[in-house]
Design a protein around this nucleic acid. Structure first.
Lengths: 123, 123
DNA sequence: CCAATACTTAACCAAACGGTTAATCATGGA
DNA sequence: TCCATGATTAACCGTTTGGTTAAGTATTGG
């Protein structure tokens, strides 16, 4: 949908940031960071149904943040690292820029109520 | 919804990650990183309507990533830095853990097809 | 084997998303 | 003044999301 052509990388970032955009899923990540767990075990602290947890795990798995592996009759969940690197790369790219360039600029813009223009066509 | 009580910080992270989960919005951020722009100007490269862009800006603004300020009859958009720090903090927290602890663990788990149990109740 | 345990899939639902077009508001130049 | 320009609001629409309950699948202990 939307922009006509969405690249593979776009889709990956979509999935990763979407996965991180829900507090329950972030809590699942926090739980798994303390050690891998079976689904039912993992679901215990959460006040929602098991199928709901299962779906959250789907979302996390699609984003490449979590993997499930059958172990006997349990389905053990554990975190995987790679996906976060992409998310981090995106964020740090702009964060670096903002902290070096934008903080002062923003301060300037806010300080001067009606800031004069200039340099707009920097592109 | 969901977990009964969602903290302020949860809500902020929800908003930030949600804002970042759309490729169009990430492109808007990329555009604005090259310099602040009026809405219509900003919308030009995008194959969607102006109201759609306006809504995306709402989302980015709610997340604290962008601010709009009227300047004559233009509405100038610029990035704001603070919100990304939160997102970064969340990611880096787990990224650090993963890269130091999990990479080997994952490798181990994958290497041994049916990894023996043990240490399950580590929590 | 077979029943209990551990999940997942299916079907459904209300609300949120991302987009549209049309109408409205806001501002500045002629 | 008034209208053209810039942008938001309103109303609508199909799809996705996050949840539910109920039914189905998989595995293993008895």
């Amino acid at each position: 949908m939307s922009i006509a052509k969405e690249t593979k990388r776009d889709e990956r970032l979509d999935a990763i940031f979407h996965a991180l955009s829900d507090a329950t899923r972030r809590r699942i990540i926090a739980e798994l960071a303390r050690g891998s767990q079976a689904v039912t075990e993992l679901a215990l602290p959460f006040p929602i149904s098991l199928p709901a947890i299962s779906k959250h795990l789907d979302v996390l798995e699609r984003a490449g943040l979590v993997r499930r592996a059958r172990e006997g009759r349990f389905q053990r969940c554990h975190l995987t690292a790679a996906a976060l690197d992409d998310a981090s790369a995106f964020i740090e790219r702009y964060r670096a820029y903002w902290h070096t360039n934008l903080d002062q600029l923003a301060a300037f813009v806010e300080a001067s109520a009606t800031p004069a223009r200039a340099k707009k066509a920097k592109k």
